[in-house]
Nucleic acid binder design. Structure first.
Lengths: 220, 220
DNA sequence: ATTATCTATAGATCTATAGATAATGC
DNA sequence: ATTATCTATAGATCTATAGATAATGC
């Protein structure tokens, strides 16, 4: 693998693991057994590394969120979207941690991230709309739909932060099970809009995303 | 005012304005025209200042979320809760920006913040429950209620971050109007659960929180 | 006497670059 | 010839403290 790609990968790993703020360019270089000078030969700054990582993240999510053409959406599609997106968020979890700071210090990233958000919101709306076409969700007024889509986005993007901040007492790590509860939370928002035909199916599907390991949560 | 209090206030202002990461203890001292040594006489570290600020934030939110005893909740109570909480979030907006980092580096804060979250979630559930008692919301299954309350929390706590990251293209600042749209978003989640008696009233109330200045949003 | 403040600075990083050297591809 | 890498370091901070001095409260 090219050194440039190694730097991106190692940075992502270290950022996710220790938090970007605690990872310096020296750490990244040391972790790869290369010199800091070499790292700076490939990247002009740490900001540039973060930008590269964002580009990959964006590519991944755009890929996950492709809509099938020429057929209706199914419940399986919907679940696939949810699972993949949470997976993507997990793989790049450092990114949303100090997102505001990155946008403050990188003009390009600010512009690109804004467009990324808008693209995602449009896609969420499109998904909801096509779930209506498929008779899974009821039709609702357009403004209400926009607002719903935005709430989905807010819940999805804040889920990891919630887990990290609310569970991290005994240094206990976030498990795949907890991550899955994010799917549960999104489904909760859509339950009132399910058609009678689909309600029971979705309700029992949802139960699979309520992890048993989150006992503390159910004790609240 | 005592120097110690001045330090807390100045820190909060600077953190909110420039981002905590960009504000050093030297900046805080310089801003107050005191020496760094003096600052360290009052606080052992920057972490301690952040912890103090959290205690104030917590006090404020707990105060806002008090429930009236001996009478039913009204729609006005509900709106008051929403408006105050968003106001609190705004006043301490730096806090959620790099929250995970603060929790990583301060054991006390980690413990206290977790308890704070759990307390808030309980209160949100209590509010929903009492809105049911008041005949404003329909009754729902208990697990569903918990999940709804959590979604409310996720939307509320991530709203400012969404505004900052999605609107900040032309260096444009966040306005009170945009902040208010957070109330709109929370109401959206509760609309399906409104009783017939209250639905229309809440729908027209909600419209007041859809700011005209967010034209870009409606063009998405 | 105690509390508050200042001056000066040690010590620890961290980013980023200059300049030398090694490796690679025509 | 060009690309990749290393060594060494300048320069900029930042946190935190020691020790001296000023202000305040009995």
């Amino acid at each position: 693998m090219k050194t440039r790609d190694k730097i991106i990968l190692a940075s992502l790993d270290l950022f996710n693991e220790r938090g970007e703020r605690n990872v310096t360019t020296n750490h990244i270089a040391a972790h790869l057994n290369i010199s800091p000078g070499n790292l700076y030969y490939h990247f002009r700054s740490k900001t540039d590394i973060i930008y590269e990582i964002f580009l990959q993240y964006q590519l991944l999510v755009d890929h996950y969120l492709q809509l099938p053409q020429g057929r209706q959406l199914t419940l399986e599609d919907k679940i696939y979207y949810l699972e993949s997106v949470f997976d993507g968020l997990w793989s790049y979890r450092f990114f949303h941690r100090d997102l505001e700071h990155y946008l403050d210090s990188d003009e390009r990233l600010r512009r690109d991230y804004r467009e990324f958000t808008m693209r995602c919101l449009r896609t969420i709306r499109e998904i909801l709309s096509r779930l209506q076409d498929a008779g899974i969700l009821c039709r609702v007024e357009d403004g209400h739909m926009k607002s719903m889509a935005l709430n989905v986005w807010l819940v999805v993007t804040s889920w990891l932060s919630f887990l990290k901040t609310s569970q991290g007492d005994d240094g206990q790590e976030i498990t795949r099970d907890m991550l899955r509860q994010g799917v549960y939370q999104v489904i909760t928002m859509e339950i009132p809009y399910l058609t009678d035909e689909y309600r029971d199916r979705v309700l029992s599907l949802q139960q699979k995303y309520l992890p048993g390991s989150l006992d503390r949560m159910s004790a609240i």
